[in-house]
Write a protein that binds this DNA or RNA. Structure first.
Length: 861
RNA sequence: GCCGGGAUGGCGGAAUUGGCAGACGCGUUGGACUUAGGAUCCAAUGCCCAAAAGGCGUGCAGGUUCAAAUCCUGUUCCCGGCACCA
């Protein structure tokens, strides 16, 4: 085993005496200060011949302090932004604050600090943290959503939405979180619980609220998911599920014996109208309006239905609605199947949901699992109407196991439709229903309109007025913004805090000049984040939300080039944003159909196998990490520990490892960047001694590996590993130098190139240190705009390669050959190899597999 | 139940197209330097075997192939999403 002899004067001792240690704090505060002075450094260029690149990280809520998840998110975006700058792009890399919302109100109540003050203080603190971490944001475009210069445009948009009929007011059953004391959108309810309060069940309340008709775009939102190959499949699937498109048929059953034919219709939605001749009952949701009528004079039935409602609620509490036992009540009435005039019993059941389809179903026990279970329990008739088509005649048809639910079959006992395949029957029967006026083919969605009214203070006031004479009237554009008043008592509960501010509530109707009452609800904060990234393109504009040309330049045809954020917004923020973009496109404000071309969801950070939480005491604070190891190390560790899309299990020792590595780089440059070297501008000599050639080769291989990771998979863990390998090789080459030899082991021109490239390759990951190295090397000009190094395939090429030799697939030996060695040459050497010969004793070579440049495998028996 | 993702040393992970399993880092062990070392530098480190030779080894069981972490079939477990969706 070859190894280096211990040197008489080792690098170790020399370093201890003459070299400074890597002092991240000193280096980072120096560069931080310089960057603060040069605010234009990271600014996107107003006009440019360069290609544009818009890279964006999801803006944070100003909770008071960054957490490690933020650092990881921003470290990814910052690395990419810096890489793109160095590759000659005009980069837009902005940051802002999603600063309306409940926590500010809760904190205000707890600490007796007004929400605005609390929020802006947090913004300042977190901005300082971001600067300390060295993220390269264009702060001239900062957006703070709770300030009137931003939220006035929420109001402006709301009026546009209202004018187009996309914003509307209706009374309906809505989700109410008692802890938030406000209404929630469907998207903010998870398993029947509040998204912010996992322990709190959402209640249903009948309220009049403002909604946005996101369902206008249901189909487009679904269809365009196929045009987003740059999005994670997971997110697209989640949105598809959420939109929940379902093709089926509406069929009207008549209530038998109803006095008034107009109100006797029971609309049923089914995806399997082909099975309708097998319907042996109709089931209503307990909240169905018809149930209310039927129970009006029937206290017993009313009590039974109430029981069903209670069971549904219970199931939601458990959070596993699929496990609840099915219960039903026979109303004693009948519904008439319009296809055959048959009377079937009308039931109310606890497994029918009022908020999907029509809240009523036809029950076909023979061909639906749930209906089958229900029918067995209540001894309802099971009638087979589909005969399965099975390839194997043994298994066919005679006695299929019920329920039989697939589409592979033909209809029986189905009147004129008998003999049709399921697929054909669905089409024919839908057309038949339409022709006879009792139904039609239809599409239902799970997606519901977006309820945006919030009965809270800290949000955008909805710019609407209620006039006794003129009804609902929008605030005229010239009167915007409707300013959110300060000094509002938010500690009282019950209703919107703004409703207790007479100066706010009392207004004048712009139409008739008479008295009007102002809307006192505020907007869901997801309105703020639905379009904020357009505002970055023109943040100072006070005549419009943004200039069309500027937004057009940065969004182009396809939107933000790269958006990076957590998976928790897969549905909420990202579906609202898509909706908003489509609305703005229809208004003619923008040309792009989608806001984001490429989306990246970074993985969560955990520690000790669990999500970081105060109660577990495993929270890692960015401030703490920066103080102990420096910003560069903390950032770089989040990129090195694993690939960005995976879950990251935090390990403090891992950060130490990065700090150690950065120290190695720093010390290498300190002792090898003698000012006298700077006069060397010679090109690297074409022919290098063995050791130097090895370093040159490694250098170019490293450039390739780092560049490839940026271009492709974003596996920065392997990019950083590649740079580490290079540095390890430099240290190995240095070893003998220290032993007193005066000639440098690495020729100065190559040494200078290596050091320059090190600074360039580290710039996206450890910007402070990279800038320090750049300066130490006497380089002029900003590292940020220095061109990314090019790799030369000729220089990266190996002159000699080791070919593994297998016998019957098992590695037996390796032969070292010139890279261009012929197959014959390699085979000759391989068969001469002792180990190979030993493995071939008593065997006959059948054939030799030869993979150029990779390996050879001798097949022998 | 349905739809995703995953399982590789003591740990985080690497292996980009089927071609040397374990790069890089952590940890551990040994050494150098030292008044000292929790600094730094060097080396070793998948498992079995005293060592060599050899064997075994990518959740599990099979299969395809000269060759499988990678492809196929079946299966277990873990994580995430959706869920009486008619």
């Amino acid at each position: 085993m070859p190894h280096n002899e211990p040197a008489s004067v080792s690098p170790a001792s020399r370093e201890a005496q003459t070299e400074e240690r890597y002092d991240a704090q000193r280096i980072e505060s120096k560069w931080s200060a310089l960057w603060q002075q040069d605010s234009a450094l990271y600014a996107a260029e107003a006009s440019s011949s360069k290609p544009k690149y818009y890279v964006l990280e999801m803006l944070p809520y100003p909770s008071g302090a960054l957490h490690m998840g933020h650092v990881r998110n921003y470290a990814i975006g910052d690395a990419l932004a810096r890489y793109m700058w160095m590759n000659g792009y005009n980069v837009l890399h902005p940051m802002g604050w999603d600063s309306f919302g409940l926590p500010a109100e809760n904190a205000a109540i707890q600490n007796n600090t007004p929400p605005r003050e609390w929020t802006l203080r947090n913004v300042a603190a977190m901005k300082a943290q971001m600067k300390r971490l060295g993220f390269a944001y264009d702060w001239s475009r900062e957006v703070t959503t709770c300030l009137p210069d931003y939220y006035r445009w929420n109001q402006w948009f709301f009026i546009k939405l209202f004018e187009k009929g996309v914003a509307y007011r209706k009374k309906s059953r809505v989700n109410w979180c008692p802890k938030c004391a406000t209404v929630l959108a469907n998207e903010q309810v998870v398993n029947g619980r509040c998204w912010r309060h996992e322990d709190t069940l959402v209640e249903q309340r009948e309220l009049e609220q403002w909604f946005l008709r996101i369902t206008n775009y249901s189909d487009e939102l679904l269809r365009d998911l196929d045009r987003l190959p740059g999005w994670p499949e997971k997110v697209r699937t989640m949105q598809r599920n959420w939109i929940g498109r379902s093709e089926g048929t509406l069929v009207d059953f008549k209530l038998d014996g109803a006095p008034d034919p107009a109100t006797s219709s029971i609309a049923v939605f089914t995806t399997r109208v082909d099975t309708i001749f097998g319907a042996t009952s109709v089931q209503l949701a307990p909240q169905h309006p018809l149930v209310a009528r039927l129970t009006q004079h029937n206290d017993l039935l009313r009590a039974q239905v109430d029981q069903l409602i209670a069971e549904q609620r219970k199931a939601r509490e458990v959070g596993d609605i699929g496990e609840i036992e099915k219960h039903g009540v026979n109303t004693g009435r009948y519904a008439v199947n319009p296809y055959n005039g048959e009377k079937v019993p009308l039931w109310v059941a606890n497994y029918i949901l009022m908020d999907y389809g029509t809240g009523a179903i036809m029950s076909v026990p023979a061909h639906d699992d749930r209906d089958f279970e229900f029918a067995k329990k209540y001894k309802l008739e099971v009638r087979l109407v589909i005969l399965p088509t099975v390839d194997d005649p043994e298994e066919t048809a005679v006695d299929p196991p019920l329920p039989f639910t697939t589409m592979q079959g033909t209809l029986v006992n189905s009147g004129p439709f008998g003999g049709m395949t399921c697929e054909a029957a669905i089409k024919a029967m839908s057309e038949y229903a339409e022709a006879h006026g009792f139904g039609k083919a239809t599409v239902t969605y799970r997606l519901k309109d977006w309820g945006i009214s919030r009965q809270r203070y800290w949000g955008t006031p909805i710019p609407m007025l209620y006039c006794e004479k003129d009804g609902i009237v929008a605030v005229p554009e010239k009167d915007l913004p409707v300013i959110l008043p300060e000094n509002v008592d938010i500690t009282l509960t019950g209703g919107s805090p703004l409703s207790r501010v007479p100066e706010f509530v009392n207004a004048t109707c712009p139409r008739c000049g008479g008295p009007a009452r102002r809307e006192t609800d505020t907007m869901d904060t997801f309105v703020d984040s639905s379009w904020y990234f357009y505002r970055y393109t023109d943040a100072g504009n006070d005549g419009a939300p943004f200039d069309r040309e500027k937004a057009g330049y940065w969004f182009g045809e396809r939107g933000i080039d790269q958006y990076i954020g957590g998976i928790e917004h897969a549905i909420l923020h990202l579906i609202y944003s898509r909706f908003w973009t489509k609305f703005m496109r229809d208004m003619g404000l923008i040309k792009n159909d989608e806001p984001v071309e490429r989306l990246f969801s970074q993985g969560m950070i955990i520690k000790g196998g669990a999500k970081m939480s105060k109660s577990l005491g495993n929270v890692v604070s960015p401030d703490d990490m920066v103080e102990r190891y420096g910003a560069d190390s903390a950032r770089m560790y989040t990129l090195f520990a694993t690939s960005p899309d995976r879950e990251l299990d935090w390990l403090d020792e891992g950060v130490e490892g990065i700090e150690r590595f950065l120290g190695r780089v720093y010390r290498f440059v300190v002792r090898n960047s003698h000012p006298s070297h700077r006069q060397w501008h010679d090109p690297v000599p074409p022919i290098l001694a063995n050791g130097a050639r090895a370093i040159q080769r490694k250098l170019h291989q490293t450039i390739k590996r780092v560049s490839d990771d940026f271009q492709g998979r974003w596996h920065f863990n392997t990019s950083i590993a590649a740079v580490m390998e290079l540095v390890n090789e430099l240290y190995a080459a240095e070893g003998p130098v220290a032993a007193g030899s005066s000639a440098p082991a690495i020729p100065v021109p190559l040494l200078r190139e290596v050091q320059r490239v090190l600074a360039l390759l580290l710039a996206p990951f450890a910007p402070h240190l990279a800038h320090e190295l750049w300066e130490m090397l006497g380089e002029k000009g900003s590292l940020l705009r220095a061109p990314w190094p090019k790799y030369d395939p000729t220089l990266a090429r190996e002159e000699e390669i080791e070919i593994p030799v297998q016998v019957n697939g098992k590695l037996r030996s390796r032969v070292l050959v010139p890279a261009d060695a012929s197959r014959e040459n390699i085979e000759q050497r391989a068969f001469a190899d002792e180990k190979v010969r030993a493995a071939l004793v008593g065997k006959k070579v059948v054939k030799v597999i030869f993979v150029i440049g990779k390996l050879m495998n001798i097949v022998a028996r």
